[in-house]
Amino acid sequence: MVLAAVARRRKLLNDEVIVSLADSSWEILDISGSDISDIGLSKVAEICKSLKAVDISRCSGITTAGVSELVRHCHSLETFRCGGCPRSDHTARRCLGIFKPKLNDVEGDSWEELDTAEIVNGAESLRWLVWPKIDNNTLESFSTECPRIIVNPKLSPFGFRGTKVPTEALPDIALDDPVVEDIDPETWAFRGSIPRAAPTQLLDPAELSIAEKFRLAFVERDTKLAPKRAKNARQHQRRAEREWRTMDARAKALFLASQASKSLHNRS
């Protein structure tokens, strides 16, 4: 999770990176402002089924398809952050229908009064929706249909409607801030931009996959250590030969005979 948080801050978080790092123990997922698409979000949702808080704000590559997969796999999702850019706001608007649970054939005026067992699909565990740019009409409509879900809660010493607002539902605090709070920002701060190679060109080293970066690092290290390994091998061989020669007279005679044989062979 630390690697994912640092990668997000360095603008390096994409589908390949997040899928390679995802772990089933994760309860939060902050991919805001990243290049992650529906594919990456769907695969992470399959792996991290215990997610309780997710932030996809400013992710222009995520649509309702990715959010649907998130809701389908993560039944413990309580906090959802979205919006922040035109395309993400559009996705958020279309996702409101996904957050409304679909009902079986039951009697009753509102799904708010139903047990979870009577609700099929939908985000039955969702309680906090953070969408700063939601328009008033949409907010009023959604709040009327889904009073269980609180939109853009405000921090208050008395809580919200008798319920304490969790830190994950406060937009001013990044979900992954606690993960990197003990890490010096100078070690992950990114300055400038990474040039993206054209499709017909070779990939820039900064755009290589994590696996390829590890492979290249291993090859470079192996190349640097090769002379030292060869030297150590020669020293080990000479030491073994000296020890062998001093073991007994017969071993010494055999060694001298082999040396003489090599000398004669070289002269011929």
Rank of each mutant, 00 (worst) to 15 (best):
F80W: 03
R93N: 09
W111P: 06
T116W: 08
S88E: 07
D115V: 08
R94H: 10
N104C: 14
G83F: 09
K102F: 02
L77E: 04
E107W: 14
E113V: 13
L114T: 01
C82N: 05
C74A: 08
S88H: 07
L103D: 12
P101H: 06
G97I: 01
I119S: 04
L96C: 04
L96E: 01
L114I: 03
E118Y: 15
C82R: 00
G97E: 03
E118A: 12
C95R: 02
L96P: 00
T91I: 07
H75L: 03
S76M: 01
D105E: 15
S110G: 08
A117D: 11
L96W: 01
R93W: 11
H75F: 02
E112A: 15
G84M: 02
L103Y: 13
E112H: 15
S110W: 14
E118L: 12
P101K: 03
F99A: 05
L96Q: 05
E78V: 06
P101G: 09
F80H: 02
E78R: 10
K102A: 12
L103Q: 15
N104Y: 15
K100R: 08
C82H: 11
V106Q: 13
H75R: 11
S76C: 01
F99Q: 09
I119W: 10
L114H: 08
C74Q: 04
L77Y: 06
R94Y: 02
S76D: 08
P86K: 07
L103S: 14
F80T: 00
S88K: 03
I98L: 10
R81C: 03
R94V: 01
